[in-house]
């Protein structure tokens, strides 16, 4: 069964329609990559999935339950869906550790001591055990982004959304963040990524969706999309990237 299903999702900001009827199904343990030019609606779509933006029409189903119902309290849903942003968005006045502990402590009402073991493990797994007490401005971009991922994972989400998480990084730091994603992929995390890392998407994604002007023009397994794109827009987009 599909973990997350989008049915005819539309979203506009004023006169600007960003999503024009998007259908998408993400199966449990799958990795879906959204590709497309900037402004094609990738980020907005992710923000809608996390209920950070209310959708205008259509439905979003999590485990078969409509979470886009107007008036629904979004908090318990967001706890089940982790999100990582392009600009890291760590809380600058807290150490890396406190960034990670804040939500589990406040939302799950767990004590610091009860969480420490699990959280320390997360830091260790992603190679940041010696950076726990650092403040965000003492960390490199790659380290900050890895802390942001740990912060989201500490809530034990059932699905993770990644919004161009390597786009703000220096090229030499992209690898360390992609390695984290590889690790999560291997552990069977359900993930949706908006990304410009085509090589990475091709290597690991189960499904690639090409977005253009708020529509999914084409979707399928990476080999089909990258080797034999059907749509002219997809061809043009991929050509521009490789040119």
């Amino acid at each position: 069964m599909s973990k997350l299903v989008l049915e005819k999702v539309t979203k506009s900001f004023g006169d600007n329609t960003v999503c024009r009827g998007i259908d998408l199904a993400v199966a449990d343990g799958q990795m879906v990559c959204l590709i497309g030019a900037s402004g094609s609606g990738k980020s907005t779509l992710l923000r809608c999935m996390n209920l950070l933006e209310p959708i205008d029409d259509g439905r979003i189903l999590l485990d078969g339950i409509d979470i886009s119902e107007p008036g629904l309290n979004p908090q318990p849903i967001r706890q089940r869906i982790g999100m990582v942003f392009q600009s890291f968005n760590l809380f600058p006045h807290m150490t890396a550790l406190d960034n990670v502990l804040l939500a589990p402590r406040r939302v799950h009402r767990k004590s610091r001591d009860a969480l420490m073991g699990e959280v320390t493990d997360l830091f260790r797994r992603f190679g940041l055990a010696d950076r726990m007490t650092h403040y965000p401005d003492q960390l490199s971009g790659g380290q900050q982004q890895r802390v942001a991922i740990i912060r989201a994972l500490a809530m034990r989400p059932e699905i993770m959304l990644f919004d161009e998480i390597t786009s703000a990084l220096d090229p030499e730091l992209v690898g360390e963040v992609l390695d984290v994603l590889r690790q999560l992929r291997a552990e069977g995390m359900t993930m949706v990524l908006a990304t410009h890392e085509m090589g990475f998407a091709r290597e690991l994604a189960d499904t690639i969706c090409f977005l253009h002007e708020g529509r999914i023009l084409e979707q399928g397994p990476p080999d089909a999309i990258f080797s034999a794109p059907q749509h002219d827009r997809t061809k043009a987009f991929l050509r521009r990237l490789t040119a």
Binding site: R47, Q75, S87, N89, V107
Partner: peptide, 16 residues
Amino acid sequence: ASQRSAAMSLGLSQSD
């Protein structure tokens, strides 16, 4: 606003 987004995405309440 991205700080608010980040906090909300973690499931924190408005007041928290």
